[in-house]
Each structure stands twice: as C-alpha cells, then as structure tokens.
Amino acid sequence: MIAVKGLRKTFTTHIKEPGLAGSLRALVKRETVTKEALKSVDLEIQQGEIIGLIGANGAGKTTLVKILAGIVHPTAGEATVLGFKPWERNNEYRRQMCLIMGQKAQVWWDLPALDSFLLLKEIYQIDDRLYRENVEFLAETLMVKDHLKTQVRKLSLGERMKVELMAALLHRPRVIFLDEPTIGLDLSAQKAVREFLKSYQREFRPVTILTSHYMEDIKELCPRIVIMKEGSFVYDGPLAEVQRMLGDEKCLSVTTRERTFKFTIARTELAARTAEIFAQNDVLDLNIQDPSIEDVIESIMKNGTAL
C-alpha cells in the first residue's frame, strides 16, 4: 500500500544576523542554510496497518506525511501510495486519501460544517446514499450531531477537530494521514478522538499514519511505531518490542540526607547495586520502578538507542 525507498527532502531557508546591522546586510546579501529534513528513509506499510510516527519537533515527521499526501515534492527517492506517486497528485489517488492536520483547519471557517460537507460531497463525487450514511455514522460516533449547523469558527477546539475528522473521512479514504490530531484538545476530547479513530480503523481498515506528541495516542492506537531523529528512522518495529525493552531495566530513585538521585540499571544487577547503595549512603527513601514507555522512547529519540 505504502512503499518508500531512499526518500530525501532538503529545505533551504534564509537566515539573518540579529540587530539592525544584520537587517541592513540582509538587504544586500542574504545567507541561506540547507536543512536535511529527511535523510534517505525506507518504509513499507500494509493495508489495514496503523503506524505511529514519533519524534521531537523538526525530526521530519510532518515532512514525510506531507510528501506522502502529495503536498510537498521530495528532493530524491521513491514513494508510492496505492500505486501512485503522491506528488503527481493524480485525482484517482486524491479521492482515496485524506490528511488531517491538528494545527490547520481544512473546513471552511465561515460556513456551518454541513455546508462544507456538501461541497466535499461534490468534490469527492460521493453518491447521495453513501454521503447520508457517512454523515450519520460519523456524526453519531463523534457525537457532533448538534453542531453541524453552527458556523465552524464558533465551535470549540474539540468540536472543530471532530468536524475536521468528519470532513476528512466523508469519502471513506483508504489512506489516512493524521498529523497531531489531538493537539490542544482537553483530556476528554482527546479520548473521544482516540476512541473514534480506533473504531474507524476496526470498521474500515484503512492504512493510517499518525504523528503525535501524546504518548497516549500512540499507546492506544499504534501497534507499530517509527521513531524519527533528525530526518532518519532510529526505530521501526512493534510498540510491544519497545515495551519488552523495559523488562531488562529498572529505574532507581534514591533519597539521602544530602540529595535525591535517579538512575537506570539492568534488572540482574538490582540486588547487588541496592545493597551497595545502602552500604555507602544514609538512605532515607529508595524507590524501584519499571521505566515508562515514554522514558524508553525519549531515550531512543535522544541517543538513537533504548536507555
């Protein structure tokens, strides 16, 4: 369904020294920097799979999604989605995919959502019966029936996100790109969106790529994760595998009269190290925990390895 090979993307941006002198100099000569947003990445995703794309800001997640959605052209490499090169923007491809960006509205702000849906119905050439079914199913599942006649700009962030989801899924896409769909939402709205995505995935089995900074999204939705660091993949595999990595490690938090210190050690060394700590320090408190999945992923993002 999605096959990516050696995909690269570089961006050139202008830079300017701070201050008035820098501004004056930039009027005559501007300096540029080239940033490699994607460094030759390979990826394969099958029908019905949902993968979580994780990485720090600027890791290249959104760039990859934008290339696969056909918004941005790659600098080099190959990618096909449903057999199409996304950046050629074949209408046949665009009718089968959707992109939802948590930070950008795609429905028309000045119109009620139903007006936007009617327009999308024509753009995607959705037949009347399917359109009615989809609006009903999505509105019911997302619980936004009462908000569809309100101007989108007057909706709350959570309601707007749900309307965005509805608009993007009206044509039942086979490929879904979700770029931080829960950003800025409160906890209950995040949960509702996650539940919806889970049930949608179960029902229609699209290929889904999800980027998110919220680990809850990833843990709930993505059996497979890809961790990105500075434009490269540093981990591509099952989330369960990351969870298994936790099994060999323990996190210790030790409080003495002077200070509190935390460190991670191998499970096999636990007894010996604990005894050693007690022997060498005046210990007030000692706490032993499994490292959280967030800790492992953060470590992979920082160091390229797990803990």
Partner: peptide, 12 residues
C-alpha cells in the same frame, strides 16, 4: 500560512 495545502489534497 500553509492553508494552500488543501487545494493540493482535494481531487480538483
């Protein structure tokens, strides 16, 4: 502002 992207996604 990047909202131009929508025209590249829609099949038109």
């Amino acid at each position: 502002d990047g909202t131009f992207s929508r025209y590249l996604i829609y099949p038109l």
